[in-house]
Amino acid sequence: MAEKFREQGVVLSNGQIGTGIFDLKLKTDKIAAAAKPGQFVSIYSNDKSRLLPRPISICGADSETGELRLTFRVAGKGTEEFSRLAAGEKVDLVGPLGNGFPLERAFATDDSRNCADRDGAAESVGVKGRRVFLIGGGIGIPPMVQLAKTLTERAQAAGDTAASAGSPETFQASAGSQAAGANAVGFQAAPFITSVLGFRDELFLVDDLKPYGDVVIATEDGSCGTKGNVLDAIREKNLKADVIYACGPTPMLRALKKYAEETGTECWLSLEEKMACGIGACLSCVCRSTEVDGHSKVKNKRVCTEGPVFRSTDIEL
C-alpha cells in the first residue's frame, strides 16, 4: 500500500483560470514527491463547521520542489473557501490517495498491431509506440496534465537509457521482452499522446497539454474545435488509440466505456464520488463493479481505494 501523509500545505499561489475554475499551488513536505498521475488529495476546510475533506485530483506534482498543483471548480461552500486561499495561508491535506493511472499500459508492446500508418520518428528505430488518448471532460482535465507530463518524462528517460545502451537492435529486442512490467519502462517505446479535451464553452489548461502531443478540442457550443463532445471530436477526426485514459463527468465516461467496448480499445476511467473518509473506511464512495470485489465481497468497489482509476470493463456506469 502506498504511503499516505497528513500535512499542512502552504499556499504558494492561487489564481482563477476560468469561470469558477481555480489553480491552487501548494508547498508540501511529502505529498507532491509521492504523488502519481491520477491520484488525489483530501483537502480540509479551515472552517471547522465543514467536517469532510474535499477530494481533488492532482494536476501537477513536483517531487523536487514539493509543489502540488490542484486545479478545481467551485462546486459548493468548501471549494468556494479554497478559491479564496491566499499565498502564505495553510490548509490541511491528506494524500496522495487512491491509485493512479497505470502508466505502464502506455508503454506496453503490441506486436500484432500494424504500424504502417505511423510517422517517421518511431519507425526509424523500429519501435511501435502506443497511441494514447488522454481524454478530459471539463474539470476532469487537470489529472491529464500530470499524466501527460509523466508519460513524456518516462519516455524520455527510456530513450536516454536506450541511447546509452547501444544500438537500435538492442533497444528493439528489449522492448519486445518487456511487456507491461509495472515499473519496467526502461527500454520501451515512447507513446504517441493525443489529448482530447471537452469543454462547455470556455477553454482552460489547453496550453498545459500542448507540449506533450496533439490537442483536440470539443466544445458544446462549437466556439472552438468540434461542436459536441469528446467522442464527436474523435469520430470527426477519425482518431484511433491503443489505450485510453479518461476523467470527466459520468455521461462522458459511460460513452467512453461503450466506445472502448465497441472498438476493442483498452480504456481506463477515473471516477468521482462523494467521499467522507477518503481512505477506504467509510464505504461512502463505492461504484458498481462487474464482478464481486475481493474487499467488499459484493459488486462494489471503493473509488477512493480500489480507484479512482478503473479498467472500463471492471465497472458499471
Partner: peptide, 8 residues
C-alpha cells in the same frame, strides 16, 4: 451490498 450513491 448497501445503498446506491450518493451515500453521504
Amino acid at each position: 451490498p448497501g445503498n446506491p450513491t450518493p451515500r453521504i
